[in-house]
């Protein structure tokens, strides 16, 4: 009997709530062509990038700055480099910020990406348990990998076609080793860098990581240490590039150019150079000077 009273009441309540909330959120998204807020409507700009730029917190700093200087609504999709590049070749993103030079050259060659510019670099490091079961601390990369396979120490691979994963496979190949020879000790995580580091730490395993993510995660894994660093083959270079609007007609050409210009501008370089020094006592990314 009383269902009659409460159901409509509930519906009204919920509707009021939903519409009340949607008001504020559309304003937040900046899509409302409201003359009092902004004279021109913001257009969306989709940036496909790697998890490391997001997990390190760099993009949290760059996004508001970019949006302040340019009239775009930057949508950051943080995925593995493999997926980011795929989004580029399908024209699903406008601009890419990735770190897999060999794969990048391919999509520039295929004409899907243009205006590829170097932005910054940091380095990959090999981390592992502090007691270092394979006794590899301080060795070169090929020696380290060789000893890891010989001692059958556990190694966690990203296994997700990301930039870091591509790098890891390249290192095995350069050392003429097959990671599969590790058998069960070669663990393919299929997850982001943060999760992979956590797996490595739990399993007392070695893994390849970018320095930025490791520094951000270090507080959670006191027993994991840097084992190998500083080798030239461990350089991690980030490039920014526009998706070619002549090949993919829905790409926001002006916006993607603005983002490439922004990433290579002097002011942005200054932000990148100083990023991380407050929190970690050392910068997370370096510039080409």
């Amino acid at each position: 009997m009383k269902l009659k009273h409460f159901l409509p009441f509930l519906l009204i309540l919920v509707f009021a709530f939903v519409t009340g909330c949607s008001d504020t959120s559309t304003k937040d998204a900046g899509k409302q062509p409201d003359a009092t807020v902004k004279s021109t409507e913001k257009t969306d700009l989709i940036l496909a990038t790697t998890t490391s730029t997001q997990d390190s917190g760099l993009l949290d700093v760059l996004k508001p700055d970019f949006e302040e200087k340019n009239n775009y609504n930057l949508k950051i999709i943080a995925v593995g480099t493999g997926q980011a590049l795929e989004m580029g070749t399908r024209g699903e993103a406008d601009v890419l910020l990735v770190h897999a030079p060999a794969a990048e050259e391919e999509i520039v060659k295929s004409g899907d990406a243009i205006n590829r510019q170097k932005v910054m670099y940091n380095d990959f490091i090999l981390v592992g348990p502090a007691e270092d079961p394979a006794k590899v601390k301080g060795l070169t990369v090929p020696e380290t990998l060789k000893k890891i396979t010989e001692s059958k120490a556990s190694f966690v691979s990203r296994g997700d076609d990301s930039g870091t994963h591509k790098k890891e496979l390249e290192l095995w190949q350069k050392s003429s080793l097959d990671p599969k020879s590790l058998g069960d000790a070669y663990i393919e995580a299929g997850q982001g860098m943060g999760a992979t580091l956590q797996i490595a730490s739990e399993k007392q395993a070695y893994t390849l990581t970018d320095r930025a993510t490791f520094l951000a995660q270090k507080k959670n894994m006191p027993d994991t240490e840097i084992i190998v660093e500083g080798d030239e083959s461990l350089l991690n270079i980030y490039h920014v590039m526009q998706v070619n609007n002549e090949k993919h007609d829905k790409v926001n050409a002006a916006g993607s150019k603005a983002f490439v210009d922004y990433m290579t501008s002097e002011e942005t370089k200054k932000i990148i150079k100083e990023f991380g020094t407050d929190e970690y006592g050392e910068p997370l990314f370096f510039l080409f000077e």
Binding site: D28, A29, T51, Q54, D55, G57, D60, K63, K75, I76, I77, A78, G192, M193, G194, A195, L197, Q198, A216, Q217, K219, N220
Partner: peptide, 20 residues
């Protein structure tokens, strides 16, 4: 998981975990 646009509680939990 866009900040300020499509970030909801569950996706931000995933993100914060991956950030450590």
């Amino acid at each position: 998981n866009l900040s300020g646009e499509t970030r909801i509680l569950t996706t931000s939990i995933v993100m914060e975990v991956s950030k450590g």
